[in-house]
Design a protein around this nucleic acid. Structure first.
Length: 218
DNA sequence: ACCCAGGGTCATA
DNA sequence: TATGACCATGGG
């Protein structure tokens, strides 16, 4: 039994939400990292994991001087898993990082990949085992600075709470929903997604509506 | 002790 | 197409 999808996204709605979040929290300065490759690793490491745990894993990699594709590639799977242990799922993530790093080196790293069309680059990222839509879009937006809107569980949850979607829409439906109504604006997409994550951590009050977003009754 | 966190893959029906 | 199992640490 399927019921009709409810997507009530409009330019005005989305801009209102963005400005309301921005005026509450200000700029979030995403993605926190010292290099593009570190952003890419972080996108994999943060899969279903608290960011504080990812920071520990990245600190280990940094101390081992393994924050470049070349140095990562020299590690064995076991060594890599050991370094990223605090991020959880360390065995599967070690494989995913190796899959990604090998593809990345083979593709000529950032210098060569930056010339690719966004849709082509996205397809290539999705072809790497361990990189799904959200991870691919994190990498596209924050490392490659492409106008791709990242949809995560927080985004879906917030839009359901506000009442703009029913919640069972596909990832692609929601992504195109944002990208259709907003200009292809990398800084906007960057800040918007970061603000949604920030807002999720704040916990909007259930009673009387939230003053940071448009949740009415909770 | 329980729940969740800046997800994705694979098997199954 | 759509569930469910699985992966695993650390903070609340």
């Amino acid at each position: 039994m399927t019921y009709s999808l409810m997507i009530e996204l409009s330019r005005d709605h989305l801009f209102s939400l963005y400005h309301r979040l921005y005026s509450s929290y200000g700029p979030q300065h995403w993605w926190p990292a010292n290099s593009r490759f570190e952003i890419m690793l972080g996108a994999i490491l943060t899969q279903n994991t608290a960011w504080t745990n990812v920071e520990k894993a990245i600190a280990n990699l940094k101390q081992a001087r393994c924050l470049t594709a070349v140095t990562i590639d020299k590690l064995s799977e076991g060594e890599l898993a050991s370094l990223i242990r605090p991020s959880g799922y360390f065995n599967i993530k070690a494989k995913r990082i190796q899959n990604f790093t090998r593809w990345y080196l083979k593709a000529g790293e950032y210098r060569r990949l930056k010339a690719s069309q966004t849709t082509e680059l996205r397809q290539q990222l999705l072809s790497v085992n361990g990189i799904g839509p959200e991870t691919a879009d994190d990498i596209l937006l924050y490392a490659f600075e492409r106008p791709v809107f990242v949809i995560d569980a927080y985004t879906r949850r917030l839009l359901v709470e506000i009442g703009w979607i029913s919640g069972n829409e596909s990832y692609e439906a929601l992504r195109s929903g944002f990208e259709m109504h907003l200009d292809s604006d990398v800084p906007l997409y960057n800040e918007f997604h970061a603000l949604i994550v920030r807002h999720a951590k704040e916990k909007c009050s259930e009673t009387g509506g939230c003053r940071h977003c448009f949740v009415v009754n909770g």
